[in-house]
Design a binder for these strands. Sequence first.
DNA 1: TCAAAATCTGACCAAACGGTCAAGTTTAAT
DNA 2: ATTAAACTTGACCGTTTGGTCAGATTTTGA
Lengths: 233, 233
Amino acid sequence: MTKTKNTAKAKTSVGQGRIRKENKKRILQAAEKVFAANGFRGATTADIADEAGLPKANIHYYFGTKAKLYRTVIDDIVELWLSSFREITENDDPASTLADYIRAKMELSKNRPEASRVFANELIRGAPRIKPYLSGELKDWVDYKSAILDKWIEQGKMAPVDSRKLIFHIWAMTQTWADFEVQWAAVLGREGSLENIDYEDATNAIITTVLRTCGLLPLPARKTDIEMPIAGL
Amino acid sequence: MTKTKNTAKAKTSVGQGRIRKENKKRILQAAEKVFAANGFRGATTADIADEAGLPKANIHYYFGTKAKLYRTVIDDIVELWLSSFREITENDDPASTLADYIRAKMELSKNRPEASRVFANELIRGAPRIKPYLSGELKDWVDYKSAILDKWIEQGKMAPVDSRKLIFHIWAMTQTWADFEVQWAAVLGREGSLENIDYEDATNAIITTVLRTCGLLPLPARKTDIEMPIAGL
DNA sequence: TCAAAATCTGACCAAACGGTCAAGTTTAAT
DNA sequence: ATTAAACTTGACCGTTTGGTCAGATTTTGA
């Protein structure tokens, strides 16, 4: 409970100081790392303290309990997630809008992979602490965006697709590059972690896949030296 | 160390009995569930024992340590993973081969979601216990399959794509339905968990996406009542 | 039938856990 | 310079953790 002493004149919440702001930031960064790598139950306050370079008691001074610290980390990530995509309307161009969205999500995967992993951890465990957010804000967001996709389809601006599933699959393809980075790095033969070119190639591959799914890219040419026996067109 | 007493005549490894086999299976099933829901560090042997309906000491009697039990669970999953896809050759038909593969992966996501989640947990944590498998067997598998895709492309059987990334994205799209089931259920407005129709729709959506990406499906028709202002074809 | 092997289990242990606290030091406003 | 508020920290506490073990019970093969 942050021990607000409130000795006089209702100086609500202790938290103004420069030191406070800096330390909370340091702890939150350390916590994101440790929670990403171990989940809520597997993370220890001692690990977080070590990562932040502070004594353990300091973590409790600023955040009270491990659970409250975790909530703060999660809330920050949700805010980042929802705020990082520009508004779209039914008058926008489908191809460039989808491409921009994919690029934005891949930027997040590349620059804030730990945030993505904290979220992934929470989901794998059945989302005990964020289920209301999933069936609330997030559902609303998806309902709204998929309605715009459906409008585009109705207007003949793009081919008919299951718009909700398309959004899910864009998330799956973009976030896999953050959540399972170590797997893709190993399979691609990289030492340690992915390189810039990998993110670029992946971004282009996803954009191609999504735009072709929506009929927004010309059908790709095939090599024509040999005749092609199967599958329409 | 399973306490092989070896009292005489080298009867290597105690493990023949019916009881032994049954109990190990029960424990492994319980362990998969608990590890999936909590990760290695977050899972407790007491939880696993409760889930299996056995006293905790029993778990250690059969598997020694938590780490060895976890290894066994992981190894079983890896075997399941690699054994569950039929062999393919460059003479196969791309469209039906890819569709079959996607269906097989979605069956696994639906029927063995916990296995997928154990694996996801391990990857999110940086795969400390399975990195050799990733850059060994798994890399070989992907190298081999992507080479076949590349042959198909060369033969003009399908459009040019980044074959490795295509495989990654098929995994991402199929496994997201196991790993993050709770998220999709919440966004789709389901109570509790996904329904059969959701898996079917998702399977079809993924197949459509992949085949269109590879130029193996005719370009989808658009609604033509209004003229279409943008983006080629 | 009977004894050796396998299985079972409550009680127990040292280590690690989340969290508390009193006593100290630093900061900042007057 | 004074001092109250903010910050820091090692030591500590009750609980939970992974793992052990001795002794009881059941299974198995001859």
